[in-house]
Structures are given as C-alpha cells and as structure tokens.
C-alpha cells in the first residue's frame, strides 16, 4: 500500500472515528479531533504492524480507543471509573460552542455509565460494530462486552422512558 492509498483509506474512516471519539469525550469535538489526529499518526507510523487479521477500521478504532484511554490515564482518571454528572457538565463546558448543547440527550443518557460501558455502547449502537469487533477494539472479553451492553441497555431504556423518548 502506498502513502496516498493509506490517506484515502483514512479519509473514508475519519468521520466514524471522530464521531466515536467526540461521543467518548462528552461532545468536546476539538479534544476528539486532537485524539483522532494522534491516533491516525500512530497508525501511519505503525502501518507495518497491521497484519490484516482484522478490518482496517477495527484496527484504527483500536488505536484511537487506546489513545483515548492513555489521555484519560494522563489526566489521572481510570477508564473504568463512572463519570459523574458534574464531570460530564464540566467536560461539556470545555467543548466548543457549536457542539456544547448538541446531542445532550445521548451524553445525559450515558452519564452514569463507566467509560468502558460507554465505549462498548457507542461501538455497538452508534458504529454498528459486532461483539467480536468490540472485543478487538477495546480488549474487553466478549462476555464482559455483553454484560456492559446489558447494563447500558437498562440505563438507556430507563432514560428513554423518563424523557420525551418514552414509548
């Protein structure tokens, strides 16, 4: 694969990757874009390690998720620790004006989930990834992925019933 072909592939994958990171970062699109740039540069430099056992997008998502976890660790927060509502609001206040109040429902619905649960939920419902792909991206065993999804499902159902989305 040439450099240009790699850039073309990245151009196709950048949107879902940035969307996933943006949702993980609580709507902070500039932080998400910084993480996406970091992840894609890492992918460019380590492309030789890509063995083709998973899809290219899965490999990119894995690098991006690792970058996100590293940034959380650097900020002194464990990725498995649930985000509190106050922290969620604080995160949102750092987001740029255009994205600050957009998609609040999604962030509010997932506010009491741990970051691992959030990641699993976003990958499953937002990015339509399979359990196997989620296992490859997050490194969480498939059984744990299923239990995270089950918990997230309960939370989302409860949230939807309490809000305008109630069926």
């Amino acid at each position: 694969m040439t450099r240009e072909q790699f850039i073309e592939l990245v151009a196709q994958e950048q949107k879902p990757l940035r969307r996933f990171l943006c949702a993980l970062c609580g709507g902070d699109s500039s932080m998400a874009d910084d993480l996406a740039q970091e992840a894609l540069l890492k992918a460019y430099l380590s492309f030789g390690k890509f063995e083709g056992r998973s899809r290219f997008s899965t490999w990119l998502f894995r690098i991006a998720y690792n970058c996100f976890c590293d940034s959380r660790k650097a900020a002194g927060k464990c990725p498995t620790e649930p985000i509190t509502f106050a922290e969620e609001q604080r995160a949102d206040s750092t987001a740029d004006a255009s994205s600050r109040f957009s998609h609040q429902d999604l962030y509010l619905a997932m506010e009491r989930l741990s970051e691992a649960e959030k990641a699993v939920t976003l990958l499953f419902y937002m990015e339509d990834k399979s359990i196997r792909d989620i296992e490859a991206i997050t490194g969480i065993p498939s059984g744990t992925v299923r239990s995270h999804l089950s918990r997230a499902r309960q939370h989302l159902r409860k949230y939807m019933e309490e809000t305008k989305y109630g069926i």
Binding site: R19, L106, L156, Y165, I167
Partner: peptide
C-alpha cells in the same frame, strides 16, 4: 418499554456529527 431498535434509533438520532472533514484531512496530510 424501548426495544433494541428504539435504542439504536435513539443513539443514531443523537450521535454527534463531526464537521470540517476536509480541514481535518488537510491537517493530517500536513
């Protein structure tokens, strides 16, 4: 009770939509 399909629809309806893909790719290329 919200079904699996409703949850997926809710997430997709509220998901962020990143903009400036061209600027992002230009920065990446640089």
């Amino acid at each position: 009770m919200a079904s699996e399909k409703d949850i997926r629809h809710f997430v997709k309806h509220n998901m962020p939509r990143p903009e400036n893909g061209t600027a992002f790719m230009e920065e990446y290329r640089r």
